[in-house]
Design a protein around this nucleic acid. Structure first.
Length: 234
DNA sequence: GCAAAGATTTGCT
DNA sequence: GCAAATCTTTGCC
């Protein structure tokens, strides 16, 4: 039985780059009891301030990104490319728009539920291409290693059944259906940095800022569009 | 009001 | 290696 210790909001209230290092290794949790889905965060990306021309906050405060301007510890979920969801954790004090995009998670518990959730959404998408496509999708996910089930920002949301309705949830509230917890007994984690992925639209110097943080060696770490050679296994 | 693009993933050439 | 899928938000007329 794992003791649940809610993730301290104070850590997220700090500078986003500092918060990123502390968020790595933390647990993302959906639900309670034996049914709970739990994953260890191994990859995040920082989006900091209105100056950051890769961030949604670059347009100023809008209806979609309003939560980014709110207090730290809150979830910001949005839809990208019309089909995938992305989960962010708000950082820094209210008034300053900043967040950490959760790019990859290493499953710890509730793996069967995660797999079922992945299949549920994947099958829904494959449905339009016919029965054969559905069967291929189902079979591919049934045989997928657990560590790859949430190895990407859209996949994290699929595995944890996250969508826009979760946006605004307080992830630092022990009573929240979706929340963050401290991993007990986790020693200091090695952390590597690199440029953010999928933001080629942003001009320099934002495009090259090393604001992607990940745990080297984790089999769950993504490398962006299409798993590249030499990416997942450093 | 309409056109364009996106913090992605998957499948096919 | 490239393009499709798919729909909300943003930007410009």
């Amino acid at each position: 039985m794992t003791r649940s210790i809610v993730f301290p909001r104070a850590i997220l209230a700090a500078e986003t780059e500092t918060a990123a290092r502390r968020l790595l290794g933390a647990l993302l949790v959906r639900g309670t009891g034996p049914e709970a889905r739990v994953g260890r965060i191994v990859e995040v990306e920082a989006y900091v301030g209105e100056d950051d021309l890769a961030s949604h906050a670059r347009f100023g405060r809008t209806r979609r990104n309003a939560v980014m301007f709110g207090p730290p510890g809150v979830a910001y979920v949005y839809l990208v490319y019309g089909m995938h969801h992305c989960l962010n954790v708000i950082t820094e004090p209210a008034g300053r728009p900043a967040a950490l995009l959760v790019r990859a998670v290493e499953p710890v518990a509730g793996v069967d539920s995660m797999r079922a959730a992945r299949i549920d959404r994947a099958v829904r998408r494959a449905g339009r291409r016919g029965e054969a496509a559905i069967e291929r999708t189902r079979s591919a996910l049934a045989g997928m290693p657990a560590e790859h089930l949430a190895g990407g920002p859209g996949l994290v949301c699929d595995a944890f059944s996250i969508d826009e309705s979760d946006s605004g949830l307080d992830l630092c509230d022990a009573a929240s259906p979706l929340r963050l917890e401290i991993a007990v007994g986790d020693a200091t984690l090695p952390v590597e940095m690199g440029p953010r992925i999928g933001i080629d639209y942003a001009p320099e110097p934002w495009r090259s800022r090393p604001w992607r943080f990940f745990v080297p060696g984790s089999p769950s770490v993504s490398t962006g569009p299409r798993r590249g050679p030499g990416g997942s296994a450093p």
